[in-house]
């Protein structure tokens, strides 16, 4: 039997976490292959719709990673994003998505070790929860 593998969508900021992924790669670091990466220009670009769309299309987990506070390429994009994320995470968990499905991190482009360890952490958290059951939209359930 095939072992179930989680599908995780990672939204990575172009200026930091995406670079960290690159560095982790060239440094030959080992980490689980379950994250599908989408490059974004800044965490400030994240719309709540992106996260919901990932979940609706069946992602088992979503992970968003950007620059450390103070390091935003656009000065303050991540500061704004931080507030949006806090409210979003609380609301989606309030609605019944398990904590552990949605992750956030700050990873600079130099932090390849942190990158690998966060991928590990996110993957094992999502793995522990198993396949997601709710909030997946395939065919509409209508008459």
């Amino acid at each position: 039997m095939n072992e179930w593998k989680p599908r995780i969508v990672g939204f990575l900021c172009n200026w930091c976490s995406y670079g960290a992924a690159d560095l982790a790669g060239v440094s030959r670091m080992q980490y689980p292959p379950n994250v599908r990466v989408i490059r974004i220009p800044c965490t400030g670009r994240m719309s709540p719709k992106f996260i919901l769309a990932a979940f609706m299309k069946g992602a088992d987990g979503v992970w968003i990673s950007g620059c450390h506070p103070g390091d935003c390429h656009y000065m303050e994009g991540n500061y704004y994003a931080r507030r949006k994320f806090a409210l979003f995470k609380n609301l989606i968990e309030y609605m019944g998505i398990e904590p552990g499905r949605l992750h956030f991190s700050w990873i600079s482009s130099a932090e390849s070790t942190k990158f690998a360890s966060v991928v590990n952490e996110v993957t094992s958290a999502v793995k522990a929860l198993g396949p997601r059951e709710h909030f997946i939209k395939t065919m509409p359930r209508v008459a």
Partner: peptide
């Protein structure tokens, strides 16, 4: 893109209510 379907599918209905509320945050 179409973020939310227009039928009364329960996932779409919930998405509507979720985003409507989130849009009113603060």
């Amino acid at each position: 893109p179409q973020w939310v379907g227009k039928s009364i599918d329960p996932v779409d209905t919930r998405t509507f209510h979720f985003l409507r509320a989130y849009h009113c945050a603060g």
